[in-house]
Amino acid sequence: MTRQSAMGPAGCFLLALAAWGGAAGREPVCSCCPGPVRAGSSVAGFCAARSDLVLWGRCCFRGDTERGLIVGLDLSNCSLSAPCAGFQAASTTAVIDLTENPLQESIPNTTFRGFTRLQSISLPLPLECPGGSMAWDTVTIRGDSRICQGQRNPCNGSGELACLCPESSLCAPDGPGLFQCLCAGSSHGYKCLREGAFPMLLFYGTLGAVTTSLALLAWGTQRRKAKSS
C-alpha cells in the first residue's frame, strides 16, 4: 500500500497536531485491558532488560509515563476481537504482544500505519504478520503464537517501491509493508509537482479568513434565533 504526501509547513503542522493527539490518547490503550503487563509476555522481558524503561498498566515507557514514549504494549489474553481504541497511540512501540486473543483472521495493514519502530509482534497463530511475511526478517511459530521480528524497510531491496513514487519525492517506510512518498527539497503539492517555498502567508491567511467567517456566521445565526424566541 502507498501513501503520497506533500510535506510542506502545513503538513508538518498537521503532523504535530496528530502527535499531540497521540500523546493525549496514550492512557486508554495502556488501560484498555485490566491489570499490569503479564509476567510471561514479550513486553515484560523487553522492559525488564532496560533500566531506563518503566511499566504502567499494559504499557512499557521510555521516560516517565506522562511525557515518555510507549515502547512496549502487552495486550495478551485480553479477550480482544480487534485492536482496542487508541491503538494508534502506541505507534512508537518496538514490541507488541497480542497473543491469546480471539482476534479476527486478519487485521488490516493500515492498523499498523506509522509503526515504523515496531521490531517484534507476537500474534495468535491464525493471524499473518502485518504486511505479510516478506515485511519481516524472521517469522517464528512458537506453540499457539506467531512471532514476527525485524521489520524490513520496504523502500530498500529491489527499489520497485521507490519507482512508484513520483519525481521530486523520496520513498519512506510507514509501517510493516507500508511506505509513503515524501516531497524532496522545495517540491510540494499534488505529486510534488510544485516548486519553490510553500505559500505560508496565503495558506494561513485563507485558513484564518475561513475560520473567522464561519465563526461570525454561527454567531449571527444563534443571535437571530435568540431574538426570535
Rank of each mutant, 00 (worst) to 15 (best):
F61N: 02
A162E: 14
A135I: 04
A94T: 07
C32D: 05
K227G: 06
M200Q: 13
G159E: 03
S168A: 12
E167C: 08
R3Q: 13
F179R: 01
G72A: 08
A85L: 13
G131M: 07
A85G: 15
T206Q: 11
V139H: 05
G40P: 04
A16D: 03
K191A: 15
S41N: 07
I107S: 03
L193D: 14
G21Q: 15
S168N: 15
C47N: 10
A49R: 07
W20R: 13
F179S: 06
P199N: 07
G25C: 11
M134W: 04
A172N: 09
R62A: 11
L69I: 01
I147M: 11
L164K: 14
A48N: 15
G150W: 02
I70Y: 02
I107L: 15
A49L: 10
C60W: 10
S145A: 15
R50W: 05
N156H: 10
F46Q: 06
R146P: 00
F46V: 06
G159V: 03
F115Q: 08
A90W: 00
L127E: 09
G208C: 14
L14D: 08
L69P: 00
E195M: 10
A39V: 08
A215K: 02
G25W: 01
L161A: 08
P126M: 11
T111C: 03
G86M: 02
S169R: 12
C33S: 06
A49T: 09
E100D: 12
E195N: 13
L118S: 09
L53N: 03
L73R: 07
G131V: 09
L127N: 15
V210H: 05
L170T: 09
L103H: 04
R117S: 13
G57L: 05
E128A: 15
G175I: 02
L53S: 02
G63E: 06
P173C: 00
S133L: 05
G177A: 05
C183A: 05
C148A: 04
S76C: 08
F61L: 05
L103K: 05
D52F: 09
S213G: 13
W20F: 09
S145H: 14
A85P: 11
R67G: 01
P9I: 09
S186K: 14
A218G: 12
L216S: 12
G22F: 09
F112I: 04
P108I: 00
T65L: 03
P108H: 00
A209D: 06
G150T: 03
N77I: 01
K227T: 13
I70Q: 04
A16I: 06
P166Y: 10
G8V: 06
D174K: 00
A209L: 15
A215I: 09
L207K: 07
P176Y: 03
L123P: 10
T99V: 04
Q88I: 06
G11F: 05
V95Y: 00
T111H: 05
V54Q: 10
G57Y: 07
C129E: 08
C30K: 11
P124F: 00
F112Y: 13
L125T: 02
A24P: 02
L123W: 04
Q222A: 14
L125W: 01
A218F: 13
L127Y: 04
G189K: 02
V71A: 06
G57Q: 07
